[in-house]
């Protein structure tokens, strides 16, 4: 049971807040640099995300008069906390996660939903028309990508016969050939993750040309910095989850080699996400709903069916 009690160190330093924040910053830079290079631009220097953060922290934080003061200021912290907590259940180096229990996969998925919920509440409590429209879009979008994401992850869980991220990673590390079975699920999960992170082509909630900044319209200064950091952290946790569930995690390696593999796999996922961002233009909300429910969800269901059949065979 001691594994269920994470220390303050693992929550605040590694793999929690500090590590996740630093790695999220790096992942954001890698994403922006790749995006720029694909568009044949030079791209930002490595310290650009840090400079952006410092700039935002130095700016004045304005809370709208009509907004609920407490909720408005608390929500960014809740988003960051949810991402940090989710990271505890995903293996970082070696096959073990800080916290592991049967069903932590479900816990991770739900913790990763909390940032989106805070985006909605943030927009709603801002009392701005742009923020309200953006937050309603965020919530509508949530119902389209969440189901395919859950279904695709559950497919891998069925094949591994476990609902623990750590055990799923260990199962696939022992039988790498079975990873190929989950390839359609991997594609579904990557697309759903792109939707979860609200990035192009699924950046409908904060489409700048239509609804200014969406839920973040009224946010500024430190609070906005926290929200953006939460998005970066969510990207890392999502990439780590995909690497653990669909790519075999650390493949049994521990220590520095395991960590190097973790970095390689998460940055690989970030590369694919950046490629998607560069490849496509924003689609409309109803197009996204149609795409997620008519294409992603059936593929994920077929994936589950295939997993059940293969589970019978082996």
């Amino acid at each position: 049971m001691e594994s269920l009690a994470p220390s303050a160190f693992s929550l605040l330093v590694f793999p929690g807040f500090l590590f996740l924040g630093a790695y999220g910053t790096l992942a954001q830079w890698v994403d922006r640099k790749l995006y720029a290079r694909m568009q044949r631009r030079v791209g930002p220097p490595w310290y650009q995300p840090v400079a952006d953060l410092v700039k935002l922290l130095a700016k004045e934080t304005i809370v709208p008069q009509a907004a609920d003061m407490a909720v408005f200021q608390l929500l960014p912290a809740v988003a960051v906390a949810a991402a940090c907590t989710a990271m505890l259940m995903v293996p970082v180096w070696g096959p073990g996660a800080v916290v592991s229990f049967q069903g932590d996969l479900i816990a991770v998925l739900y913790l990763l939903t909390i940032p989106t919920a805070t985006f909605f509440l943030a927009g709603w409590s801002s009392t701005s028309p742009y923020a309200a429209v953006g937050s309603v879009r965020a919530l509508t979008q949530l119902f389209s990508y969440e189901v395919p994401l859950f279904l695709s992850v559950i497919g891998a869980a069925i094949l591994a016969g476990s609902l623990s991220v750590q055990e799923i990673a260990a199962f696939f590390a022992a039988r790498p050939a079975l990873l190929a079975v989950n390839l359609p699920g991997l594609c579904v999960a990557l697309l759903a993750l792109q939707g979860k992170l609200e990035r192009v082509p699924f950046d409908i909630p904060h489409a700048e040309t239509e609804v200014v900044g969406g839920p973040f319209t009224e946010y500024s200064g430190g609070l906005l910095a926290l929200f953006l950091a939460a998005t970066d952290m969510e990207m890392v946790v999502g990439a780590a989850l995909i690497s653990a569930v669909f790519l075999g995690g650390s493949l049994g390696l521990t220590g520095a080699a395991g960590f190097a593999l973790f970095v390689a796999k998460t940055l690989g996922v970030v590369f694919i996400l950046a490629l998607m961002r560069a490849l496509m233009a924003r689609i409309r909300l109803e197009q996204m709903l149609g795409f997620c429910w008519k294409i992603l969800a059936p593929v994920a269901l077929a994936q589950i069916l295939a997993d059940i059949l293969i589970k019978r065979v082996i």
């Binding site: 568009q39 044949r40 030079v42």
Partner: peptide, 17 residues
């Protein structure tokens, strides 16, 4: 645009600092 984008990774940037 896939080929174009991946090609961009290995070519000199069209912009300057």
């Amino acid at each position: 645009m896939l080929g174009e984008l991946l090609g961009g990774l290995f070519t000199k940037p069209a912009t300057v600092l």
